[in-house]
């Protein structure tokens, strides 16, 4: 890939999706865009760039989609889902005992593995959640992946990465080589197309936000901006779950790390009540 082509793609992706590629991500572009260029009947990336410079907006959309769609699998990284089961849900059960409702947002829902993993986890705890209203909202930049998520149909390869076999037996129906997640689990997840760069306050307030492996693509200012808006969309006693390689530390103090639980954060109460803390501290003495 020529340096001018790389720069062109960097700028295009930044403008359209906020994706902020550092100078050394040629491999990422090649691995995502070479298959796309073949699909479009083009010889390679420079032909793809030529088409876009010529004003092919459908190709622009496909390039953005190819670059921002993440490989994902059920119960990815496992630990966040252990936190969800062992810490987050028990806390929410206590905190929302009167209201009996839990609202969860998967901010990079992708092809559905993450929201459905959460839905299955909640199903496993259904005894404790009897009578509760459960909402899981899955959003993604890409309409195409949302459609796949809604359908809930996965290849044999996809259902073998991260999904325990007992869960496959329990929550999926087989259709030839494909596996579809059961209708009652699908019904637990609502899908919305959403660009995190845009206002998302209309989604309402959440108890839990999973926002994993998506902020990694944004530049620092954009990250700070999104964290600020995530904090406003979260209940004061809510939980934020980030990807393994992501953190708020050094970027913002609207969230603070949850002790001893990697990847888990909570709104920073001290920051929310900026005017009051000194008085409160004195009153406590």
């Amino acid at each position: 890939m020529t340096p001018p082509d790389y720069e062109y793609l960097r700028k295009l992706l930044k403008d359209h999706s906020g994706l902020d590629l550092s100078a050394d991500k040629q491999y990422l572009i090649e691995s995502r865009l070479l298959p796309l260029s073949r699909k479009c009947g083009l010889a390679g990336i420079s032909e793809l760039v030529q088409k876009m410079k010529g004003g092919a907006s459908t190709i622009v959309a496909q390039v953005v989609e190819a670059m921002t769609t993440n490989e994902t699998f059920f119960f990815r990284d496992k630990v966040p889902f252990d936190h969800f089961r062992d810490s987050i849900v028990p806390e929410v059960l206590k905190a929302r005992a009167a209201r009996k409702s839990i609202r969860i947002w998967c901010a990079a829902g992708s092809t559905g593995q993450e929201p459905y993993s959460l839905a299955m986890s909640l199903k496993e705890m259904s005894a404790a959640l009897a009578g509760w209203r459960i909402e899981i909202i899955a959003t993604d930049l890409s309409q195409e992946v949302l459609e796949k998520s809604k359908a809930g149909i996965y290849s044999q390869f996809e259902v073998q990465r991260g999904l325990p076999i007992q869960m496959l037996v329990k929550y999926f129906k087989q259709n030839g080589e494909l596996w579809q997640i059961n209708a009652d689990i699908r019904a637990m997840v609502q899908h919305r197309q959403l660009n995190l760069l845009h206002d998302f306050s209309q989604l309402g307030m959440f108890d839990v936000i999973f926002c994993r492996n998506v902020l990694i693509y944004f530049d620092q200012d954009t990250k700070i901006n999104i964290f600020g808006r995530l904090a406003k969309s979260m209940e004061a006693d809510g939980f934020l779950v980030l990807g393994a390689a992501e953190t708020v530390v050094g970027l913002t103090d609207v969230f603070k790390p949850f002790p001893d639980k990697r990847g888990l954060y909570r709104p920073n109460a001290a920051r929310a009540a900026t005017a009051a803390p000194k008085i409160a501290a004195m009153a406590g003495r």
């Binding site: 993440n70 990815r76 990284d77 630990v79 492996n213 990694i216 693509y217 990807g243 390689a245």
Partner: peptide, 8 residues
């Protein structure tokens, strides 16, 4: 053991 989480 659980391997290190996969980076993007």
């Amino acid at each position: 053991e659980l391997s290190e989480p996969t980076p993007v």
